[in-house]
C-alpha cells in the first residue's frame, strides 16, 4: 500500500468518521446547553424575531458602516480567500470526482488554469492574512495555537494541491498522497479547532438576530 492508497483509504475513512462524530458532538453540545433566561418582557412577536434572525445572518455578515474604515482590510481579505477556497474546492475536476464518489453526483468543472490562478491568489491572501495577524499587536495577542494550526493545515492542503498540479516536489503519486493526507488531517482537526466556525457562524448570527429582535433591538 503506497501513500495515495493509505491517504484515500484507511486514513480517509478514519478522518471521515472523526469529522462526523466531532461536528455532531460539538453542535449538539452547544444546542443543548442551557441558555441565559430572557428576563425582559418580549417587545416583538416570535414570528418577527424569526425574521429578525434571518436578517441577522445577512446584516452581521457585512461590515458595520461605523467601523468600516477600521475593519475593511480584514473583511476584504477574509471574504476574498474564502471565495477563492470555495472555487478551488468545488470546481476543480479531480475534487468534483472525489466528492462525486461519495455524493453520487458530479457537476461541471472549471478549467485547470483558472483553478490554478485562484489557488495562487488564495495562497497569497493566506500569507497576507497571516502577516496581518503577526503584525497587528491586538490580533497577535488574541491569537493562540488554534489560529495558527488552523491556518497551517488549510495552507498545507493548498500548497500540496498546487505542487501536485504543477508536478513539483517529487513523483505525482507521492505529492497527491501528501495532498489527500493533509486533507485527512484537516478533516480530523476540523471539529476541534476554529475551522468549526463554518458550522457555527450562521446559526449563531441567526440566534443573535432572533434574540435582539425579541428584545426590541435592531438585528
Amino acid at each position: 500500500m503506497d501513500l495515495v492508497d493509505f491517504a484515500r483509504g484507511t486514513a480517509l475513512k478514519i478522518a471521515f468518521v472523526v469529522f462526523f462524530v466531532g461536528v455532531l458532538w460539538r453542535l449538539v453540545n452547544v444546542m443543548l446547553l442551557r441558555h441565559r433566561q430572557m428576563l425582559s418582557e418580549p417587545r416583538r412577536s416570535v414570528g418577527a424575531a424569526v425574521l429578525g434572525g434571518l436578517k441577522g445572518m445577512g446584516s452581521r455578515s457585512w461590515p458595520h458602516p461605523e467601523f468600516i474604515k477600521r475593519t475593511v482590510t480584514g473583511e476584504a481579505l477574509g471574504y476574498s480567500y474564502h471565495i477563492g477556497l470555495f472555487i478551488v474546492i468545488l470546481f476543480f475536476a479531480p475534487h468534483i470526482v472525489f466528492f462525486g464518489s461519495f455524493a453520487g453526483v458530479r457537476w461541471p468543472a472549471l478549467p485547470s488554469s483558472i483553478i490554478t490562478i485562484f489557488a495562487v491568489i488564495t495562497l497569497t491572501l493566506f500569507v497576507a492574512v497571516l502577516s496581518r495577524r503577526l503584525g497587528h499587536p491586538v490580533l497577535r495577542r488574541l491569537s493562540n495555537f488554534d489560529d495558527y494550526f488552523s491556518w497551517f493545515i488549510v495552507a498545507l492542503v493548498l500548497v500540496t494541491g498546487l505542487m501536485a498540479t504543477a508536478h513539483v516536489g517529487g513523483p505525482y503519486q507521492r505529492i497527491l498522497g501528501l495532498h489527500i493526507l493533509s486533507f485527512d488531517l484537516l478533516l480530523i482537526w476540523y471539529p476541534f479547532g476554529k475551522l468549526m466556525h463554518s458550522f457555527y457562524i450562521f446559526p449563531t448570527r441567526a440566534i443573535d438576530g432572533y434574540l435582539m429582535t425579541r428584545k426590541g433591538a435592531p438585528s
Binding site: 495515495v4 492508497d5 484515500r8 483509504g9 484507511t10 480517509l12 475513512k13 471521515f16 468518521v17 472523526v18 469529522f19 462526523f20 462524530v21 466531532g22 461536528v23 455532531l24 458532538w25 453542535l27 449538539v28 479531480p94 475534487h95 470526482v97 472525489f98 464518489s101 461519495f102 455524493a103 453520487g104 497527491l176 489527500i180
Partner: peptide, 29 residues
C-alpha cells in the same frame, strides 16, 4: 478515477456505504 475514495469491499466507496458510515458517525456524535 484516481481521486476516488477506497475503503469499500470492492475498492471504491459507494454512496450508500459513505452515507451509512456518515450516519453512524453522526449518531455517535
Amino acid at each position: 478515477p484516481i481521486p476516488t475514495a477506497r475503503w469499500g469491499k470492492a475498492g471504491e466507496v459507494s454512496t450508500a456505504e459513505a452515507g451509512t458510515l456518515a450516519a453512524g458517525a453522526a449518531l455517535t456524535g
